[in-house]
Amino acid sequence: MDIKDIIKEENKVYGKTPVLTDNVMHYCPGCSHGVVHKLIAEVIEEMGIQDKTIGVSPVGCAVLAYNYLDIDWEEAAHGRAPALATAIKRLNPDKYVFTYQGDGDLASIGCGEIMHACNRGENIVVIFINNAIYGMTGGQMAPTTLLGMVTATTPYGRNAELNGYPLRLTELLAQLDGTCYVTRQSVQNPASVRKAKKAIQKAFENSMKKKGTSFVEIVGTCNSGWKMNPVKANQWMEENMFAKYPLGDIKDI
């Protein structure tokens, strides 16, 4: 059978969702952000909620997320996305509202906002990308940086005495009465991508059930920051990150 007989519209089994725009993402090759953007877009398409979704983008690499998902967006100040989302959802309860935040944005400068939004049980979705580094500013230490990990501001490796410990914020948030679904996923291979997508879909569905906050952490890579090629970075993540940040549902009620 000739290739061109296979490549026909009626044989198409997977393609780019129209909820993703045609803009080329500014992310580095192999960046996990692209996969997670795609999953959110696919969930929005499959749930048919493009006109009912408002996204809140962070400060960090994903600051320009609004260029890639064809939905209405608000771009927040550093760390404040959960405050924006709180007001958006309370004032527009018929809308699906999600924040998309990195580890610097959410777990460092925005620690207060995420803690209180989750504690109030805001009916929003939080997508938390944890790649253990500040990507946008050039690879500095994040709260989630592993001990011993070399970054631009821990050139000799993260030292607990000097820099404190890697912050497992997701476990903390699971303790709060306001969260209904807290999970940690990854997107480095097809199986993990499919699981992560299911988690994101569940989180979006929860947000209309008045159950509280749904929090999806995605452990991701930062090839540029980690100074590895994308395939190697995925391996390094599996070998090093998952021990500190184990995958799976932490809370699901």
Binding site: I6, V13, M25, G34, K38, N189, P190, R194
Partner: peptide, 22 residues
Amino acid sequence: TGCTNCATVCPDSVITVYRVKL
């Protein structure tokens, strides 16, 4: 085999997959 694994993991959504049953 048109398994879609490649497109599933592609961060830039640049792969379209086609499959036929023979």
